[in-house]
């Protein structure tokens, strides 16, 4: 609305008449004595445990077991065709029987026909069982991990940080981010948590140690 900008800002300034003219934002003290991380256990084990709390499926494997783990997971799921970002490593799928469709601009209907999607992540947070996607290597755009009903995410051990305060500095706010903590869920019916609504109803995570 023309003029509304000035009107709102003027009202805000008038409302703050009690704030001394010389006060800068930084003059309002913010105590930062909360813990940078909580000591809740070894990060990889903690991450796995917290994911399982959300009913996600979790596997831990050394690098040489990754391809077999991915292949087994896709087979168990019965996924015949899975999507992946164009830059997802070829060797993840070396033993998979499923057809891997690289996302070169699949339309929504195309994504909807996929049996699942396999991605990497940018950062993972142990304490909250969270994986964060930033559209970077092996992750693709946001729609890729949203429309298929099954998401298999490969997390490298060195991507796991203890808590949220460690995750933020590793992420660029300029990129669209998706923080995922378990499969989609709702508590809207009697505040009872049920897994599986609009987002992927199954989340499977492979931790590469």
């Amino acid at each position: 609305m023309s003029g509304s900008r000035e009107r709102v800002l003027a009202r805000v300034r008038a409302a703050l008449a009690d704030v001394p003219a010389g006060e800068a934002p930084e003059d309002v003290a913010v105590p930062r004595d909360y813990a940078p991380a909580h000591d809740q256990g070894e990060t990889t084990a903690l991450f796995a445990e917290r994911l399982e709390d959300y009913k996600a499926l979790v596997h831990r494997t050394p690098p040489e077991g990754l391809a077999a783990t991915v292949a087994r997971a896709l087979a168990r799921r019965g996924a015949g065709r899975v999507a992946a970002a164009e830059d997802a490593p070829e060797d993840w799928f070396a033993q998979a029987e499923a057809e891997v469709v690289r996302d070169g601009g699949l339309d929504v209907a195309g994504l909807d026909r996929m049996d699942g999607v396999v991605t990497g992540c940018a950062v993972a947070v142990a304490e909250t069982g969270t994986i964060v996607l930033d559209g970077g290597r092996a992750q693709g755009r946001r729609a890729l991990t949203l429309i298929p009903d099954y998401h298999l995410c490969v997390v490298r051990g060195d991507q796991i940080v203890a808590g949220v305060p460690q995750a933020l500095p590793r992420l660029s706010p300029a990129r669209p981010l998706t923080w995922i903590s378990g499969p989609s869920a709702t508590s809207d019916i009697e505040l009872d948590r049920v897994e599986g609504v609009h987002g992927p109803r199954t989340l499977e995570v492979v931790i590469v140690e």
Partner: peptide, 28 residues
């Protein structure tokens, strides 16, 4: 991001958090 999910749904973290800054070409 630590205060809200725990206070709200009583979860360590809510299933999905989206952040975006303006427009991202080719995504969204």
């Amino acid at each position: 991001l630590q205060l809200l999910p725990r206070s709200s749904t009583g979860e360590r973290m809510n299933p999905y958090t989206s952040t975006w800054t303006g427009v991202a070409p080719g995504d969204g």
